[in-house]
Design a protein around this nucleic acid. Structure first.
Lengths: 183, 183
DNA sequence: CCTCACATTGACCGATCTGTAAATATTCTT
DNA sequence: AAGAATATTTACAGATCGGTCAATGTGAGG
């Protein structure tokens, strides 16, 4: 299987897991929907967990690329970008197929502290904080790390409530808070 | 089975589902750990989903009772109680067996918009908002509902990050934000 | 003590779970 | 084109899934 086909497999598996959940999705369904037989899948991933980890790596890249680029498109200054994050989130919440944060859901289903899926899910959040902290520092804020962690809390809270309520409003509500702590 | 035994069953099932997850916990395990045979369980709950709904009803009562009482114990004024919520959360995050919010996890595993489990999970959050809004109104705040929704976002964000990172710090960080928007 | 209603049980059902083995296509090298 | 190496498939294994049934245990009323 070429690298390309393997990437297609991961990308298709991502859609299925995001739509259906991890434990609720059997490998038979993954095989059927991706058009790749189970044996071939297991040639490249020793276990279902390894496939999930590969899916989460792809999701991490995709999501950070999308979010950071969108923040740049929506604002010029670092502080403006941090605020614009919530506009980007609102677009996401309104998009077809929005089902909440894949990492929160992965962490919820694989909640063992030492589970690789759990650790990798939190690593994604740490990468977000790193980026927020860089922007906060560039904007001349004192204690950029603390600000970055506060923004992460706002972002995750907005995602969780938007996903549960099927309503994008939490993006604006979180933005209102962010505007106050950024000003 | 007496009402008492039925309640015991629900309470024990709660512990198992909270520790193990919903889809990952089979009814055979529930039967074994509660000491009640599967047939007896299914006499009282027609499906696993109905048992889960009963578990979530109990959790809703338990959690709101605990949180609201703890807020009252920690502060007198309505505004003080809203701020003290984050101290109560910190205690929860530090407690043995803390595994995040059961409703967020239920919503993550049963994400269908029309799923009863999903709707009941969000209903719990709405009850929290109602209480926050009453306190916000009693504290003389303008737009108490908006403030209540903002506090909910802070609370959920703190829970999610605390659960993923196995670190209670988000409680203090969320409290710092709350102090600013309450002042 | 006997009976009847009910609670509870171990065994079981078909479906589905993750993962694998043997057999078949396909591709690459020479 | 021949043969080695690699991909892929079908079929299946053993375990577990949610849920059920026939048989047993139990307690109250006569």
């Amino acid at each position: 299987m070429s690298r390309n086909k393997r990437d297609d497999l991961i990308r298709n598996a991502l859609k299925i897991f995001y739509r259906n959940g991890f434990n609720a999705t059997g490998m038979d369904l993954v095989a059927k929907e991706t058009g790749v037989s189970k044996t071939s899948i297991y040639k490249h991933f020793r276990t279902k967990d390894e496939l999930i980890l590969a899916v989460l790596r792809l999701r991490d890249e995709d999501f950070r690329n999308w979010l950071f680029r969108r923040m740049e498109e929506l604002a010029d200054s670092p502080a403006g970008q941090l605020l614009a994050m919530f506009d980007a989130l609102e677009e996401w919440f309104e998009a077809d197929g929005f089902q909440g944060c894949m990492f929160i859901k992965a962490s919820a289903e694989f909640q063992d502290k030492d589970d690789a899926i759990n650790r990798q899910s939190y690593a994604h959040k740490e990468l977000l904080v790193d980026h927020f902290a860089r922007l906060a520092e560039a904007s001349g804020h004192e204690s950029p790390r603390a600000l970055a962690r506060e923004l992460l809390i706002l972002k995750e809270g907005a995602i969780v409530i938007a996903a549960m309520s099927h309503n994008p409003a939490p993006a604006r509500e979180a933005k209102a808070i962010a505007a106050r702590i950024l000003g």
